[in-house]
Computed example of a mutant assay.
Amino acid sequence: MTEGNFVDYVKIHVSSGNGGKGSTHLHREKYVAKGGPDGGDGGRGGHVIVKGNKNLWTLLHFKFKRHFKAGHGEHGSKNRSTGADGDDVFMEVPLGTVIRDTDTNEVLFEITEDQEEKIIIKGGLGGRGNWHFKSPTNQTPRYAQPGLEGEEKNITLELKVLADVGLVGFPNAGKSTLLSVITSAKPKIADYEFTTLKPNLGIVKHRDYQTFVMADIPGIIEGAAEGKGLGHYFLRHIERNSSLLFLIPADSNDIAKEYDILLNELKKYNPELLDKERLIAISKSDMLDDELKAEMKEELDKDLKIPYIFISSVAQQGIQELKDKLWNMLN
């Protein structure tokens, strides 16, 4: 999927259908002089419904269609015939989509399961026909209820990527390169910061035909939790990953300090992110000789409280070991 096709945030206007009017018909038939009221009820207006679809990965299909309007209910008619209900409108979204009220910013619900359906706004109820209102004292009511009007709402759809492993690191740490090596994804790779502006997903093939999904989250910078850089856009995608892989390059000035900064940004954004399993991968480690590696290990064993592994995406060093560790974390 190219970067321009990954849409993870859209604003939409939805309106449900009006209910149909009840009928005021009086029964007329040969040999039945005064048949009485037999006006049917109006049909209900159509609902606007969101439905989960596991085969969708992006909100791209909402990019050019921003208005959704359900059908109106039909009016009631004679012989107590109820009008047809208005057509419901179904909006299919990828799993992990959060639906907010744009005006109040309140989260209405989120879709996390395939074929899960939630009604965003209900259609108006149909009016009752005049036969409901007959009584011993009013045997020919010549009135019925009008249908209720539908509702309108502005909503925001926000996609939080559902992946097993989220790649976390500073810009230019080598996340896209790693993703391109261990999956068949083809992210944009260049040696400048913020090459990746949208999350990239790839499927990692493990031993015995097992697979898991990895997401390359765009680079985090210090202050991302306050919205610096593109902080909020990136951080929300990390919420849905079950494990986090921190990628820190071997030529970093202070690996432990970089890890602490990244962890601090996650904590500021959402402290629950620290409950996820974590692993550090020290990338670009083909630049290190054995002596330098041994020295770094001594320091890291003191400074880091979580497991770490030396890898090189370009030289394909430690890649299988990394897959094994991630698989064990997930299972």
Results as ranks from 00 to 15, higher is better:
Thr2Met: 07
Ile282Tyr: 02
Asp41His: 14
Glu272Leu: 09
Ile311Leu: 07
Val204Trp: 00
Leu274Gln: 08
Ala281Val: 05
Ala294Gln: 12
Gly123Gln: 06
Asp208Gly: 00
Glu92Leu: 09
Lys134Ile: 13
Met287Asp: 04
Leu273Asn: 11
Ala84Phe: 00
Leu60Trp: 00
Asp208Ser: 06
Pro249Val: 02
Ile261Pro: 01
Glu222Ala: 15
Ala225His: 12
Thr97Pro: 06
Val107Arg: 12
Glu92Gly: 01
Lys276Ala: 05
Ile99Met: 03
Leu56Arg: 11
Ile280Asn: 11
Phe133Gln: 09
Leu148Ser: 09
Gly86His: 09
Glu29Asp: 13
Gln115Trp: 07
Val204Asp: 02
Lys78Val: 05
His25Arg: 06
Val314Ile: 10
Ser23Gly: 14
Pro94Ile: 04
Gly147Lys: 04
Pro249Thr: 10
Ile280Tyr: 02
Lys228Thr: 00
Leu235Arg: 09
Asp164Ile: 12
Gly166Leu: 02
Asp103Pro: 01
Ile255Cys: 06
Ile155Glu: 10
Leu157Trp: 12
Asn331His: 15
Ile309Ser: 11
His47Trp: 03
Arg240Thr: 15
His25Trp: 03
Asn138His: 11
Asp191Thr: 13
Gly17Asn: 02
Ser81Cys: 05
Thr137Cys: 00
Glu151Phe: 08
Leu274Glu: 09
Thr156Asn: 10
Gly86Thr: 10
Asp254Ser: 13
Leu60Glu: 14
Ala173His: 05
Pro307Glu: 12
Met91Arg: 03
Asp286Trp: 09
Gly36Cys: 13
Thr102Lys: 15
Val107Met: 15
Glu149Ala: 14
Gly126Cys: 11
Lys30Arg: 15
Lys205Arg: 15
Asn105Thr: 09
Glu29Ala: 11
Leu159Cys: 13
Leu125Gln: 11
Glu29Tyr: 13
His47Lys: 13
Gly36Val: 14
Leu274Arg: 04
Asn55His: 08
Ala84Val: 09
Asp303Tyr: 15
Glu158Gln: 13
Thr24Leu: 02
Ser16Trp: 02
Ile155His: 12
Leu197Ile: 14
Val50His: 01
Leu201Thr: 03
Ala190Leu: 01
Tyr9Ser: 05
Asp101Leu: 04
Asp88Met: 04
Asn138Gly: 06
Pro37Ile: 00
Ile217His: 01
Asp101Thr: 08
Met296Glu: 07
Glu222Gly: 10
His206Asp: 11
Ser313Val: 08
Lys51His: 04
Gly19Gln: 03
Arg44Thr: 07
Gly227Phe: 01
Ala185Gly: 10
Lys153His: 03
Trp57Lys: 14
Tyr192Lys: 09
Ser16Ile: 02
Ala163Cys: 05
Phe68Lys: 08
Tyr269Phe: 15
Asp114Ser: 07
Lys228Val: 00
Ile306Val: 15
Leu330Arg: 09
Pro199Met: 10
Lys284Phe: 09
Ser81His: 11
Ile319Phe: 05
Ala185Gln: 08
Gly52Tyr: 00
Tyr308Asn: 10
Ala173Trp: 08
His61Val: 04
Glu277His: 06
Asp251Met: 02
Glu3Phe: 07
Tyr269Lys: 01
His47Thr: 11
Ser180Asp: 06
